[in-house]
């Protein structure tokens, strides 16, 4: 039933904007590096020692690496979604067409053989 419903209304994949996607992924990895947090980073780490800064830098580098990996996974998922959407759209067009064709054939059949 759910498959049939999906077949009838293939949902177009919703893709977030660049900033939304970045914030969404980075929010789970390193909240310091989201767009909003970056604006307040200077105040947040005002009295930091050079050693602490170095540690933070390492943390950020690792976070960007992890982000890149998560981003690659997301793009792969999007590719799969786009492929599924394409297939469903074509199947949907085919199904609608068959229904329409079936109606026409029925009316023709009834016109040719009214008693049947």
């Amino acid at each position: 039933m759910q498959n049939q419903q999906n077949l009838q209304n293939p949902a177009r994949p919703v893709i977030p904007t660049g900033q939304e996607l970045y914030d969404s992924l980075m929010g789970h990895i390193e909240p310091d590096l989201t767009t909003e947090s970056l604006k307040m980073l200077e105040q947040k780490y005002a009295g930091e020692t050079p050693e602490q800064t170095a540690v933070r830098k390492q943390r950020y580098d690792l976070a960007f690496e992890r982000y890149d990996q998560a981003y690659a996974d997301y793009v792969e998922t999007l590719h799969a979604q786009a492929h599924r959407y394409r297939r469903q759209s074509f199947v949907q067009a085919e199904v609608e067409n068959r229904e329409q064709e079936g109606g026409i054939l029925n009316s023709l059949h009834q016109a040719m053989f009214p008693s049947a």
Binding site: T17, L21, Y22, L33, L38, R56, K57
Partner: peptide, 26 residues
């Protein structure tokens, strides 16, 4: 390079680059 300012600048640059890449992909 290890100053907090440089780190902030680097982080902002990296973040912006990734946002632009995501936007192009979208």
């Amino acid at each position: 390079d290890e100053s907090p300012d440089a780190l902030l600048k680097h982080a902002k640059g990296q973040a912006l680059e990734r946002q632009q890449r995501a936007e192009r992909m979208r």
